[in-house]
């Protein structure tokens, strides 16, 4: 039955090799057809000449790209201080929503109200309200900086989402783990810190990676209240050169960061799914 054939394959291996070849041929043909259709059709669209001139102008691209990269450093900077603050605040809120002590009941209400409010308001609105509202109180420099209040708006919004993800992780740790830890004489706090949280945090790493990617993009919302980060810088070039190509350049810079990060998050998710099955 399983005698290898001339090529050294069993009948099943030979069959699967034929199947793979067939799939590959179909996929390649269909890709070529679709790609040629796009390459043929798009330049024949009536407005293509204009679009090409205003979005894909090589000269404008070369002129604006280095400055855009510089401006992107500001995005990275804002991202770099927001991310850890979000992680800490998010974890604290997740824990606050699960406290049992009656004296801390207000914390639970506060935690619940917090997540409801900040998940319910569009990020850009929070950025406006906090970014313009608080410096409007007449704070002296440097305390009226949009960097501070814009970052705070991002931190408050993202911490609400991150807290919910941490909570789902905490809930996913099986009750039997808590029972085992309690049976050893550990207090509720020790059970949470030593047994539940380490497992919960590991489980939500892929989901939190996705939050980081979203945050990376939303840093650009701060451009509306002042900081000249990459989106704002691209806007400056657009006005200066009367051309949209800088926006394409900015998009490419974002993609250079987010695509690898997204792939990595997907890889972590897939790895986790394999480990649990």
């Amino acid at each position: 039955m399983n005698k290898p054939n001339a090529a050294g394959m069993t009948r099943r291996q030979a069959f699967e090799a034929r199947q793979r070849l067939r799939s590959a041929v179909i996929a390649a043909t269909s890709t070529v057809v679709v790609a040629s259709a796009i390459i043929w059709a798009v330049p024949r669209a009536p407005g293509w000449e204009k679009v090409q001139a205003s979005f894909f102008n090589a000269e404008v691209f070369a002129r604006s790209f280095p400055k855009l990269l510089d401006a992107f450093l500001i995005n990275i900077m804002i991202f770099a201080w927001c991310a850890p603050a979000i992680a800490i605040l998010g974890l604290l809120i997740a824990l606050a929503r699960d406290v049992r002590a009656p004296a801390l009941y207000p914390l639970r209400i506060l935690g619940a109200a917090y997540t409801d409010i900040f998940r319910g308001v569009p990020v850009i609105l929070t950025v406006y309200l906090i970014g313009f509202g608080i410096p409007g109180l007449g704070l002296p420099r440097p305390w009226n900086s949009p960097y501070i209040w814009g970052s705070l708006a991002l931190i408050l919004t993202y911490a609400a989402y991150v807290a919910e993800i941490f909570r789902s992780g905490i809930d996913s740790v099986h009750e039997s783990q808590r029972a085992a830890a309690r049976s050893l004489g550990l207090s509720e706090r020790q059970v949470m810190r030593d047994v539940v949280l380490p497992q919960a945090i590991r489980r939500v790493v892929p989901s939190q990676m996705n939050m980081l990617i979203a945050l990376q993009k939303d840093v650009s919302l701060l451009s509306f209240i002042g900081p000249v980060e990459i989106f704002r810088q691209a806007g400056v070039f657009k006005s200066l050169l009367a051309n949209f190509t800088p926006y394409v350049g900015a998009a490419l810079i974002f993609l250079a960061v987010t695509i690898p990060a997204t792939r990595y998050a997907d890889y972590l998710m897939a790895k986790q799914a394999r480990e649990r099955s």
């Binding site: 039997s176 783990q177 085992a180 049976s183 050893l184 004489g185 047994v195 497992q199 590991r202």
Partner: peptide, 17 residues
């Protein structure tokens, strides 16, 4: 009580991390 009374479970419940 739990520090004086040990317990072992059907599903082991070791801490996986």
């Amino acid at each position: 009580v739990r520090r004086r009374v040990g317990m072992v479970f059907q599903s082991y419940n070791l801490f996986p991390h």
